[in-house]
Amino acid sequence: MIPHDRTPHPAAGEDQLTLVVGVHLVLTDAGGVLLGRRRNTTYANGLWHLPAGHMQTGERVTGSMSREAEEELGIRIEEEDLVLVHTLHHLDPDDGRSRLQLFFRPLRYGGHVHNAEPHKCEELRAWPLDSLPADTVPYTVHALAEIARGSVLSTVGWA
């Protein structure tokens, strides 16, 4: 028997949840996975992280990822060339917000990878998956481990 949900439901038109959606590019080659050291940022300044950003109002998630890849790395990825490899439901301990982090791998891309936002990224470097730097964003380490083991969904930060 399914217990009855006695949680009060919001009135019509009320928004129950504002979900922040992050998009992350998992770009790998024989040298490992591409990470950037964040610079002049409000979140994780100085830490290593995947090329990433947030979905903007009116964008499809694949459009967000394509835009971020071009802004941060100077490469063009067609939306249909993005494969979703992992979804992470993340409860951010800093602000208590629920975040959906989507991790994409490109089938192909155009252009040459370079640091297109040096004001936000100190350097780009490929790291072996089994020896990521100690100062990598924790949920990034988690997601990359999950991707390596073939998991498509995980959660972090929840009790």
Rank of each mutant, 00 (worst) to 15 (best):
R6I: 14
P8S: 10
P10G: 11
A12H: 13
G13C: 05
E14L: 09
E14I: 08
D15C: 12
D15H: 11
Q16P: 13
L19C: 13
V20S: 10
V21W: 09
V21M: 08
G22T: 08
G22P: 05
G22V: 09
H24V: 03
L25A: 03
D29R: 14
A30C: 06
V33K: 07
L35S: 06
R37G: 03
R38H: 03
R39G: 04
R39K: 15
R39Y: 11
T41D: 09
T42P: 08
T42A: 10
T42F: 10
Y43N: 09
A44Q: 11
N45G: 13
N45C: 10
L50E: 02
P51V: 07
P51S: 10
P51Q: 03
A52N: 13
H54A: 13
H54Y: 11
M55T: 15
E59Q: 13
T62M: 01
M65V: 06
S66K: 03
R67T: 04
E70Y: 14
E71N: 08
L73H: 03
I75Q: 06
R76T: 15
R76V: 15
R76P: 03
E78F: 07
E78M: 12
L84C: 03
L84A: 01
V85H: 00
V85Q: 00
H86P: 01
T87F: 00
L91S: 05
D92L: 04
D94N: 12
D95I: 07
D95C: 06
L100E: 11
L100W: 09
Q101R: 12
Q101K: 13
F103H: 07
F104A: 00
F104W: 06
P106G: 04
L107D: 13
L107H: 13
R108H: 09
Y109L: 11
H112C: 09
H114K: 08
A116E: 12
A116Q: 11
E117D: 09
E117Y: 10
P118E: 08
P118W: 08
E122S: 10
E123Q: 14
L124M: 04
D130N: 14
S131E: 14
L132A: 03
T136C: 10
T136H: 03
V137Y: 12
V137A: 07
Y139K: 15
V141Y: 02
E146H: 07
E146A: 11
G150L: 06
S154Q: 05
